[in-house]
């Protein structure tokens, strides 16, 4: 199974995924990213009034992202 790396970008801060997750296909990786975004948005948006959360998928540990899968933002003022 190919390994996918999921970078989480919270506002301007990128947490680079250096371990990755083995998944059957890019479609599965997209689905996982979407679920993770939903999970994490609940936490991030609870503690900040303005936030943007993005997940990018890479297929190489040091490579460029193959796509921005999911992104969400909140603005309350």
């Amino acid at each position: 199974m190919p390994r996918y790396y999921f970078d989480i970008i919270e506002n301007d801060h990128r947490s680079r995924d250096r371990e990755g997750v083995d998944l059957p296909s890019l479609d599965d990786a997209r689905r996982e990213a979407q679920e993770a975004l939903a999970d994490m948005a609940a936490e991030v948006f609870r503690r900040s009034e303005n936030a943007t959360l993005t997940i990018e998928i890479r297929t190489e540990p040091d490579g460029a992202s193959v796509e921005v899968v999911a992104s969400a933002s909140i603005r309350t003022n």
Binding site: F6, D17, E35
Partner: peptide, 22 residues
């Protein structure tokens, strides 16, 4: 496995992976 850890915590694989790294 990380997937099982996620199943125990009710977290997606990616969120589990990130939380574990943190």
């Amino acid at each position: 496995t990380q997937t099982q850890l996620g199943d125990a915590l009710g977290l997606s694989i990616v969120h589990t992976n990130r939380t574990l790294q943190r």
